[in-house]
Simulated scan of single mutants.
Amino acid sequence: MEVIKMKAIIADGSGGISVEQIRMPEISEYDSLVKMKSCLFCSTTDRHIVEKSFDFGLSYPAVLGHESIGIVIETGSKVRNFSPGETVSRAYSLYPEEFDKNGTASAWGGFAEYGKVRDWKAMLEDGLYKNLESVPGYFLYMQKLPHGLEWRKAMVISCQKEIYSSLKKVLFKKDARYLVAGAGTAGSLFAEFLKKKGALNVTLTARREKQLATALKLSSADHAISIENLAGTYDILIDSSGSVDFVEKIASQNLAPGAQIYSYAIYPDKKRFDSIRIDPLEHSVHDEVVSMLLDETINCAPYISFEFGIDDAEAAWQTILDRKSVKTAIIFENP
C-alpha cells in the first residue's frame, strides 16, 4: 500500500527546525480529517520546545504548532459534531503522546499540511468518557467556528481565547490601576481586553522600548513604560513576562499596599512571591471570543507581522529568534 505523506515543521531536539515529509494523519471513527489553512508560531512555547529550555515531557523529533486553523474535509463514521466544510481551531497532525509509524512525536503538531480533530462530545455521549473532567484538555480546545467567520479573521483565536479566559480570573475594578508586565502577544492582549472591559488605567511595562511601542498600538493601553522608567504604584499586576526577577523588582517598588499579583506566565514552582495563578480555560470562552471577532470588537490582523509558506519555515522561525514579530504565520496556501 502506498504511504501518503505531507510536509510538516519538525523540531529535532537539538535547537533547530526543518521541513520534513511525514505520514498523513490516521483518523479513527471519532476523528475528522482537516486541511490546514494556517498555524502561528508561539514565541514562548515553541521556542521552549525547539531549544528544550522547559521540560514539557516531549519526545523528539516532534511536529511543532498549537495555534492552527483548518477546514474539515472528511469525517469518521461516528462523528456527529463536525461536518465537511466547517472551520476548526486546534487541529493537530498527531495528538499529544501519539507517534507516527516512523517515530515522529507530537509537540501538538499544528504545523502540517493536514491535521485531525476529535469529536469528544460524541465520545462522551457514547460513554467512552466518564464525564467532562475525564476528556483530555487538548480535545476540549478543538472547536468549530461559525460559517460567518472566515478563517483569516480567526488566525489568532487560540491566543485570544487563552488570554481572555485567564483575564476572567482577575479582579476587575474599572478605576483600579492595572500594570501588565510583558509586552509580547500575551501582554498586549491582556491590556487590550482590559480596555475593552472598560478599565480606565492600564499600563504596560517591559524592557524593550520598541516592543512597548508596538504593544501600546495593539492594545490601546493608557501607558507603556520601560521598567527602568516605571514610577508610581499600581493596584493589580498581571504578569505575562515569565520573569521572576522582573516581577520581583516591580513588587518591591511599584505596588500599592494590598495590591494583588496575578501570574499567567510564571509557574507555581518558580515564583518567589505571593500571587494568584490564572490558568486559562480556553474552551470556556469560545462563544464570547467568536462574537467579538464577528462584530469586530477585536481584530486578529494587527497581530500578524509576517506570513510565510511552509517551505520557508526556517526564515519564518528566524523572525521569532530575531524578535521582529508579534505573530508569524505559516499559510498552507499561497501566503
Results as ranks from 00 to 15, higher is better:
Lys5Leu: 08
Lys5Val: 13
Lys5Trp: 02
Met6Ala: 07
Gly15Met: 00
Ile17Arg: 03
Glu20Leu: 06
Pro25Met: 02
Ile27Asn: 03
Tyr30Trp: 09
Val34Tyr: 01
Met36Ser: 12
Leu40Gly: 15
Leu40Glu: 06
Ser43Met: 13
Asp46Lys: 14
Arg47Leu: 09
Phe54Arg: 15
Gly57Asn: 05
Ser59Asn: 14
Tyr60Pro: 03
Ala62Cys: 13
Gly65Gln: 01
Ser68Arg: 10
Ser68Val: 11
Ile69Gln: 08
Val72Tyr: 01
Ile73Asn: 07
Val79Thr: 04
Pro84Thr: 02
Val88Cys: 03
Pro96Asp: 00
Phe99Asp: 01
Ser106Thr: 09
Tyr114His: 13
Gly115Ile: 00
Arg118Ala: 04
Lys121Gln: 14
Leu124Cys: 02
Glu125Thr: 14
Tyr129Asn: 03
Glu133His: 13
Pro136Asn: 07
Tyr141Glu: 15
Gln143Lys: 15
Lys144Asp: 01
His147Arg: 15
Glu150Ser: 14
Trp151Thr: 08
Lys153Pro: 11
Ala154Gln: 06
Met155Lys: 13
Val180Ala: 00
Ala181Arg: 01
Ala186His: 11
Ala186Gln: 11
Leu189Ser: 04
Leu194Ser: 01
Lys197Pro: 06
Ala199Trp: 00
Leu200Asp: 13
Asn201His: 14
Ala206Asp: 11
Glu209Val: 15
Glu209Leu: 12
Lys217His: 12
Lys217Asn: 14
Ser219Ala: 04
Ala221Tyr: 00
Ala224Ser: 04
Ala224Gly: 05
Ile227Asp: 04
Gly232Leu: 02
Thr233Arg: 11
Ile238Leu: 01
Asp239Cys: 06
Gly242Ile: 09
Val244Met: 02
Val244Trp: 01
Val244Ile: 04
Val247Ala: 01
Lys249Gly: 03
Leu255Tyr: 11
Ala256Cys: 11
Gly258Tyr: 07
Ser263His: 06
Asp269Ile: 14
Ile276Gln: 15
Ile276Leu: 11
Ile278Lys: 02
Glu282Pro: 15
Glu282Val: 11
Val285Ile: 05
Val285Asn: 05
His286Leu: 04
Val289Ile: 12
Val289Asp: 00
Val290Thr: 08
Ser291Glu: 12
Ser291Asn: 14
Glu296Val: 04
Asn299Leu: 02
Ala301Gly: 11
Ser305Glu: 07
Phe308Trp: 07
Trp317Glu: 08
Gln318Leu: 08
Leu321Phe: 03
Leu321His: 09
Asp322Met: 07
Asp322Trp: 13
Lys324Trp: 07
Ser325Glu: 00
Thr328Trp: 05
Phe332Ile: 08
Phe332Ala: 08
Glu333Ala: 15
